[in-house]
């Protein structure tokens, strides 16, 4: 059987809220090392990769590898019934056709159980090599969210250019254009506000803002978003979930026709 208890149930709520608009349904893969998901959006332009380590759970048991297909909208409906401070336990019997979500309030005076029907989903996995990236930018997650939101009011795409000291986000639209530059800033006294750039080679790539805005829904999971870019490769946008794992998004670039 599979059984996993997350004391910070809010994490699971935030993860599902971050991905439910991007992917309709997906297989959650459980094995002895953890709980993970890999799914492409319907247009095969972006990919979500979630990984929650077994040791990030308060209790974790997975007797055999299982793949549980779920409709994200249904999962979201159920998780919305959990309070932010509830612990969440997921349970499923081997070869079962449902997964049970148990919500416990901190004082355990309220216990609720919701069963979600599992689905058979044909999923297409992509083999993603561990790339060396030309540039890595770590910036406050809220700052990244604001940049992609603000630029979306002007244009549909963003050109992200990284140099040694700064990262520039630029867009062009019918009403004009916009540029936002963030300089490297390693404020030791305010680590949550730091912007760090690690670069092997200057890089400049263009992406659809619609998807970056969707990725930024993961902002509540982490203080920082990490952007990894390489010429002619999809961007990797990572949110590290402290002590539990990470939620990552890949987005293919746009190129001149």
């Amino acid at each position: 059987m599979f059984e996993a208890r997350l004391a910070q149930g809010a994490l699971l709520k935030k993860v599902v809220e971050a991905i439910k608009d991007l992917i309709e349904d997906a297989n959650f893969d459980c094995n002895s090392s953890g709980f993970s998901l890999q799914a492409m959006d319907s247009s095969h332009v972006s990919l979500v990769a979630l990984s929650l380590r077994a040791d990030g759970f308060e209790h974790y048991r997975c007797d055999r590898n299982v793949s549980m297909g779920m409709k994200l909208a249904s999962l979201s409906k159920i998780l919305k019934c959990a309070n932010g401070d509830d612990a969440i336990t997921m349970k499923s019997e081997d070869n079962g056709d449902t997964i049970t979500f148990m919500f416990e309030s901190p004082e355990q005076e309220r216990l609720s159980e919701f069963d979600l029907k599992l689905m058979d989903i044909d999923s297409e996995h992509l083999g993603i090599p561990d790339n060396e990236y030309d540039a890595t930018v770590k910036l406050p997650a809220a700052e990244f969210q604001r940049i992609v939101k603000d630029l979306s009011t002007i244009g549909d795409t963003v050109e992200i250019s990284v140099t040694k000291d700064a990262v520039k986000f630029g867009t062009t639209g019918d009403i004009g254009n916009a540029n936002i530059m963030c300089r490297q800033n390693k404020a030791a006294d305010k680590p949550d506000e730091s912007t760090e750039i690690d670069i092997n080679e200057a890089v400049s790539l263009t992406f659809a803002l619609r998807y970056l805005n969707s990725f930024a829904k993961a902002t509540p999971l982490s203080t920082h978003a990490v952007l990894k870019l390489s010429k002619e490769l999809p961007i990797l946008v990572e949110y590290h979930i402290p002590e539990v794992g990470r939620l990552a998004f890949y987005l293919a670039p746009k190129i001149e026709d």
């Binding site: 297409e124 992509l126 795409t157 001149e256």
Partner: peptide, 14 residues
């Protein structure tokens, strides 16, 4: 015009 590439252009089915 910018063309949107797909992920399978970059990553092999695995």
């Amino acid at each position: 015009m910018l063309q949107q590439l797909g992920l399978p252009v970059f990553y092999s089915p695995g």
